[in-house]
Amino acid sequence: MTEKKELVYTKPELKLGYGWGHCPGCHHPIVEKLVCEVLEEMDLAGRAVGVAGVGCSFGFFASINIDGANCAHGAAPAVATGIKHALYGKPLVFTIQGDGDCAAIGGGYVLNAAARGEKITIIMVNNANYGTTGGQLAPTTIMGQVTSTTPHGRNAGQGYPIHLPELLVGMQGVAFTARAAPFTPAGYLRAKSYLKTAFQRQLGEAGLTFVELLSACPPNWHMTPLEAIQWMEDKMLPEYPEGIFKDSGGEQ
């Protein structure tokens, strides 16, 4: 008698076979997986166009079977604006950007896309440092955190962490902002739920939607993946709490 095997876990169908391409313990692949799952569950893959920024998200849409692009550092919200308007609002358009891409070099693009109320979704992956270039100060680096450009820990002279989901709440063009930490099952489900709401609000033309997702960066934090998760719980979550900060509800 042969044992009947049941498939209980697999990669999403949208994920192409190029491997995950990130460092051990990085949470970018979790973000890839949850984006794929949300698109599959909402049946939006055929309508979706993604734009990745420069940094650890640069190859995001090379390995996911939806139409996508990468672009100049920080410019993803403007590129997304171009795509959305070129196609008269038809596609679901979202960006994947790191914290440096989104909050530092791209801060102006985010603010102005929000001011215009662009019907796009910005996903910012926050790992509290610059991952691709070797762990420098990011706008999201927390106080006291050691990076290669804050070797004695970030102090007030180097400024304070930026909290985009909270910052964008006051803008009329913004329909939804939230933050989740998808490294626990509960956090993963929260992240999926937030992203689904964000996409729904975009399709309802309610305004710009913004989801921040926390990620570990073990090599640049000089930690093991498990130590990195512990550090996130101890240091990052108090600074960057999970939750929905604004939800305008359905349509504008």
């Binding site: 893959a45 640069f58 139409d67 692009a69 990468n70 196609l87």
Partner: peptide
């Protein structure tokens, strides 16, 4: 073009890139 695969009636995606380095073709 990237217009959404459904819009293009396509089964495989298009990818526009402004860089060619790294591990992903």
């Amino acid at each position: 073009t990237i217009r959404g695969m459904g819009e293009r009636d396509a089964e495989t995606h298009n990818f526009i890139s402004c860089g060619q380095g790294g591990v992903i073709p």
